[in-house]
Design a binder for these strands. Structure first.
Lengths: 219, 219
DNA sequence: ACCTGAACACCGTTCAAGT
DNA sequence: ACCTGAACACCGTTCAAGT
C-alpha cells in the first residue's frame, strides 16, 4: 500500500487543514469518482452512466478514471460491492437489534431490506439491474452478496430450531423471502407500484407477516 | 393501412407460392426485425442489442429498421408489448382453465407466471429490465401490462368474495403476490438462484401456497 | 503518481440519393 | 415503398506524452 500523504507532503506544502489525502488535482479522486457515479445513477439511471459524464462532473478528463479502475465495469462493480457491503451490514444490524430486544427478526429484516433499497436506490439499482456481468471478476462483490443472503438463511435456520418458525427447507424459505423483498423493492423503485416510500415499507412488513403465518399452518 | 400484396403484385410477377407479404428484399421485414432482436437478446442480453447487429443478422443495412420503427426504443417497446400481450393471455388462460376444473386459480397463475418467464426470457427481460423508459409513448404496452395485473387483481377479489381466500386489501395482496412471482422470476433468470427450471417452477408454487395459507390465518 | 490529447473502433440517428 | 452510403455526434478504451 502506498502512503500518499507522505509523498504529497513534499510536493505540496499547503497540505493539511483537515484535508488528508489531497492529490495535486483532486483529493481522493477514486472516492470522488464513485460518488460522481452514484449521483449520475440517481439522477439519470445506471443505463445513462458514461465515463465522460463522470469525468466532466469532477472537471477531469475521461481517461483519468483508468488510473483507479480497470474499466467501466470495474467502477460499477465498486459501486455494487459497496452497496452489498452496506446491505450486508444493514441486515446483520437489524437481526442483532431484534435479538437484543427478544423481538422477531423476520419483520426486522424485511423492514431493513426495504429501507436499504429506498435509501440507497443507486446502489440497489447497480447491484441488481443486470448491468454487471462477470461477477466472478469481483470477489468482494460475491462475498458480501453471499454474506447478506446468509444472514437471512442463518436467521431462518435458528428461528426454526427455536420453534419460532414453521417447518420447511430453509434454503427454499430464504429464497422465497428474498424474492418477495426483492420484488417489492425493484417494482417500488421502478415506480411500477404506485406507492409512497412509507406505503412500500408497510407492504414489505405485511408480506413478511403473511409468509410467516403461512409457514405455521403448513402440513 | 397499405395493401402490399396489391402494390407488389405489379412489381414482382414471381409472387405467390405461399409467400403473402414478400417485399422485394425481405418478406415482412418488420416481423423479422423483432425476431432478430429476440434472438440477440436471448444470446447476448438486452444490454448488448445494437441496431447494426439486428440489421446484419438479416443482411440488411442498419438504417433499414427506421422504415418500420421510429427508433431503437420503439423496437424494444414492440418486443415488450408483444411480451405483455402473451403474458396477459397466459394468465387469463390459466385462470379460465382452473375455473373450468373448479380448481384454485392462485397456484395456476403462479405456475403460469413462472412458465411464461422461463419460456420467454427475452420478452421478460425486455419487459422488466428497465431498458424501457417513457412507457407513456407506447399505449399498448401499458394496456397489456395493466390487463395482466388486473387478471391477478380480479381473481383475488372474486376469490375473496367466494370466501375461498382470506381477508385483506385486494390491491395489497395482488402487489405482494406479483412481487413474489416477479422476484423469483428475475432472480431465477439472472441465475442468482441456483435452480433448474423445474425447481423454479416448484418454488413459485410453494411461495403461492405459503401466501395463501398465511392469508387464511390473519387476524 | 497522476493527468491529458489524439486516435481507434464502436454506437444511434439523420438525410440525400438510389431502385 | 423500401433500402443504401455518407455524415454527425456520441461512446469506451488505448497509448504516447506531459508534469
Amino acid at each position: 500500500m502506498s502512503t500518499p500523504e507522505g509523498i504529497l507532503g513534499g510536493m505540496n506544502r499547503k497540505q493539511g487543514a483537515g484535508q488528508r489525502k489531497r492529490a495535486y488535482h483532486h483529493g481522493d479522486l477514486e472516492r470522488s469518482l464513485v460518488d460522481a457515479a452514484l449521483t449520475t445513477i440517481r439522477e439519470e439511471g445506471v443505463q445513462a452512466l458514461t465515463l465522460r459524464g463522470v469525468g466532466s462532473r469532477l472537471g477531469v478528463s475521461r481517461t483519468a478514471l483508468y488510473r483507479h479502475f480497470d474499466d467501466k465495469q470495474a467502477l460499477l462493480a465498486r459501486v455494487a460491492a459497496e452497496g452489498f457491503k452496506r446491505f450486508h451490514e444493514a441486515l446483520a444490524t437489524a437481526v442483532a437489534r431484534a435479538a437484543a430486544k427478544r423481538a422477531n427478526p423476520m419483520p426486522a429484516m424485511a423492514a431493513a431490506y426495504m429501507r436499504f433499497a429506498l435509501s440507497n436506490p443507486s446502489h440497489y439499482q447497480t447491484m441488481f439491474s443486470g448491468v454487471l456481468t462477470d461477477w466472478g471478476r469481483y470477489p468482494d462483490l460475491v462475498h458480501h452478496a453471499e454474506g447478506a443472503f446468509n444472514v437471512l438463511l442463518d436467521t431462518i435456520r435458528s428461528e426454526q430450531q427455536e420453534k419460532r418458525m414453521g417447518p420447511g427447507n430453509p434454503l427454499d424459505l430464504a429464497e422465497i423471502t428474498w424474492a418477495l423483498s426483492h420484488g417489492l423493492a425493484t417494482l417500488g423503485l421502478a415506480r411500477q407500484l404506485r406507492r409512497t416510500p412509507a406505503q412500500l415499507q408497510d407492504l414489505a412488513l405485511m408480506g413478511c407477516t403473511i409468509l410467516e403465518h403461512g409457514l405455521r399452518r403448513r402440513s
